[in-house]
């Protein structure tokens, strides 16, 4: 079966010749993925990362940007391996958002 990421040879429109800046959060996604895959941790290989975003469903694949896909695949893979749970991440996310909103309203 041909996967949804396997698009070589498909018809498509003009190449969007964009040179977008590499954002801090995107660098952080790459840095953390690299560290999780290094020789001392060995928690996520490149193959596992790719398996993550090539199997999490076409809806997510089309909805998310390049780095967001990778980030979602990192979380999925860590959850499968029992390193963390989505619930733990969501709890931290809620805390970070609250702090950010407090900062916004006071600053």
């Amino acid at each position: 079966m041909r996967g949804y990421h396997d698009i070589g040879g498909n018809a498509a429109g003009p190449v969007p010749k964009l040179e977008l800046p590499w954002l801090f959060w995107e660098k952080k996604v790459e840095a953390i993925r690299n560290l999780l895959g290094d020789g001392t941790r060995r928690l996520i290989s490149l193959d596992e990362l790719r398996h993550g975003f090539e199997s999490f469903g076409v809806e997510k694949y089309k909805r998310y940007s390049f780095y967001r896909r990778r980030l979602e695949a990192v979380i999925d893979t860590l959850e499968v391996k029992g390193v963390l749970t989505r619930g733990e991440v969501d709890a931290e996310l809620a805390r970070i958002r609250r702090e950010w909103e407090d900062g916004e309203s006071h600053g």
């Binding site: 996604v29 953390i32 963390l84 991440v89």
Partner: peptide, 11 residues
């Protein structure tokens, strides 16, 4: 994206 990766980092 920023908040989510920071949440992952915190965990």
């Amino acid at each position: 994206g920023l908040h989510l990766i920071e949440a992952v980092q915190a965990v």
